[in-house]
Design a protein around this nucleic acid. Sequence first.
DNA 1: TTTACTGCAAATAATTTGCAAAACT
DNA 2: AGTTTTGCAAATTATTTGCAGTAAA
Lengths: 144, 144
Amino acid sequence: MQDKYETKLRVRGYRMTPQREMIIAALTSSDHHITAEEIFASLHERTRALNIATVYRTLDLLVEEGLVCRTDLGGDRVYYAPLRHGPHIHLVCRHCGQVIEADYSQIAPLKKRLQEQYDFAADLKHVSFFGICETCQSTEQVEN
Amino acid sequence: MQDKYETKLRVRGYRMTPQREMIIAALTSSDHHITAEEIFASLHERTRALNIATVYRTLDLLVEEGLVCRTDLGGDRVYYAPLRHGPHIHLVCRHCGQVIEADYSQIAPLKKRLQEQYDFAADLKHVSFFGICETCQSTEQVEN
DNA sequence: TTTACTGCAAATAATTTGCAAAACT
DNA sequence: AGTTTTGCAAATTATTTGCAGTAAA
């Protein structure tokens, strides 16, 4: 699985290093969105051969090469995820922080309408929407 | 126009100060989204009786009181705008930075669908979508 | 007079960067 | 060997905060 990433990077002229291998492994083994800091923390407890700056640089590289998706899930940290699932929507609960992944087909009509009516080519492939999830709706009052 | 803001704040027990007046005036007179730094800069060139920290604190207050909308338009700064228009969508061009305001009705169906299918109450009142605007589409290649 | 509000300067905190040393190919 | 990549530590930058002084009410 990580092999694909490594092969692509090699083919494109990048070098493969233990650090990059670790980071890719951490990314692909996590099935959720993950921050640079989380990747660093999970790896750093085993080996000291990794620096947080390298994590950021590698993530930037992976995003630029289109192998990883960078997502804003609110808050101050940026999240990363492998692209394997393809486009999807993030439904981020403001109360419990849970992230539900909704089907991309949900916004296809919207994308079409924005193009037609505003001539705007919206990139909705990894959009995040904020709100309140089912569980928290029953607990909290909905301010909507 | 600003009077409404000031009245509401007074009624809710807040004090009215020259600084808050200035900030509210700057916000309401700007018909676009504006950053804290921009507000500060525009006011500070006339009077030294204003501090950037006060701008941030006042904006926080106005947002908490529901009088101003805080919006993430990508990039590292946060944008603010008076709520007068009511809910709307921001279409942010990644190329030229232009922000088109699209009608909220565009996403009403999406909101409904997310509620039905995922039991998720999405807050889409001031959503931003990133993409390429008409002008830039003809200039640039569309990576979509 | 009371206590909210402001100014100032220092603190945060995620991310970035310069540069010399290390290590892929 | 030659160039990319890394580690380290310092820089960046929007925003926040502690605190003492100022000013609404």
